[in-house]
Amino acid sequence: MTFVNIALARGKSDQYLADVSRAVHDALVAELDVHPDDNFQLIHQYGPGEMVFDRSFRGGPRSDDWIAFTITDSRDRDERSKRRFYKALVHLLEERPGIHPSDVYVMMTVTPPANFSFAGGVIGTDVEAAESLDAAAGTREAYSKAEMTYAVTQLFQNGDRVPVLPMLSDDVVLTLPATLPYGGQFTGRAAFDGFFAKSPASNPVWSSFDIVVEDVIAADDHLIARLTNTAVPKATGKTVTFQNLWLFRVAGGRIVSVQLYADTAVTTSGPAS
């Protein structure tokens, strides 16, 4: 994930700007393995006196064609890759639109994927996890915490079981409070899938059931999903709002057990909201 800010003197032609844009993107793709479609840039043009720079400090001589690139990257690249990128960038800019290497200034900063949101309020870590899972296509032996966090979020937020199923161990154990009408212990991926294939509102307990994922917290050997639920128990017909926790235990890059911690009394009683 990258974002590029480009600062240069005002008055350049559209073709000049297009050549600058293409040069930095091509260099990122070729030398830093940036995805070809990951192309987000802002070009800022400045008038006389609005760009302040020394003509000879640590390089130069710099002319009025001085151009500055500020590149934000979600990955901290090694020095060798950065050296190749800098050389490729000045070479492409010199070819077209004809910027002298002495006029090219680059500053790279690193920020984690969580600091990106490409659209729809979706955090960058979820985007990265989804892309990683799509690329793996079910062939993985182990999964990262970021990928699991994304999968668990999708499970509760959208009812999408596809991302999480490959992450389960073959003998995964699902435990629900015995005091729930649908409580008990279930073993295996098929049992897990069968339980979550049914929406809460489709079982005999609830008339309706809506879930909000407050957060999914990843720790050393587990993940915790904290949910706020708004539901109508058939026993009372009254709307209740309550929280519950799902604990996902992890070992060897797989989810080995899942346990629900819930206030089971709300299935038969509870204040109207």
Rank of each mutant, 00 (worst) to 15 (best):
L42S: 04
A218F: 00
V172C: 05
L42C: 04
R83V: 04
I224Y: 12
A114M: 15
E79S: 14
A225W: 03
I71N: 01
R254V: 08
Q45V: 08
T267H: 07
H35E: 01
R226Y: 14
E214R: 14
Y46F: 08
P112Q: 06
F118W: 11
Q41D: 07
M1G: 11
T264C: 08
R96N: 06
V173F: 02
R84N: 11
V232C: 01
D78Q: 13
G11W: 04
I255H: 13
D126N: 11
N229Q: 13
Y150R: 03
G124K: 00
T179I: 09
K12H: 14
D160R: 14
S132A: 15
M148V: 03
F248H: 05
Q154C: 13
I123T: 12
V258R: 02
D134M: 12
K198Q: 15
G124R: 00
F118I: 10
R55I: 09
R140A: 14
N203K: 11
Q243Y: 09
V258N: 03
Y46A: 06
M107Y: 11
L133V: 10
R249V: 09
P163M: 04
A130G: 08
P36W: 13
F3T: 05
V258M: 02
H44N: 08
S269H: 11
E95H: 12
S63G: 09
E131Y: 15
A218P: 02
A7M: 12
W66P: 00
D160Q: 10
K82R: 09
E131T: 11
P233M: 02
V4H: 06
R83P: 10
F192K: 04
E141H: 09
V104E: 00
P163F: 01
F53D: 06
P166T: 10
V34F: 03
A197E: 11
A231V: 03
A9S: 04
M107I: 14
A88Q: 06
L155G: 12
A219R: 05
T149L: 08
A146L: 10
E31G: 04
Q185S: 13
G98P: 11
T149P: 05
R22S: 13
L245H: 11
V172N: 03
V172H: 03
G121N: 15
D76S: 07
S21I: 07
Y150Q: 06
V266A: 09
A18T: 06
T70Q: 10
M1I: 13
A219Q: 05
E131W: 15
R96W: 01
A142S: 09
F3M: 10
P101V: 08
F186E: 01
A23Y: 12
F192E: 00
F192C: 03
D38W: 01
D171Y: 01
P177F: 03
S63E: 08
D263E: 14
F192L: 07
V164S: 02
D54C: 06
L260G: 10
T111W: 04
L180A: 03
L180V: 01
V52S: 04
R55S: 09
V106H: 03
P233N: 06
R84F: 10
D126V: 05
P112N: 08
V213K: 13
L260M: 15
Q15W: 00
T239C: 04
S257E: 05
V232Q: 03
F195E: 03
V212L: 14
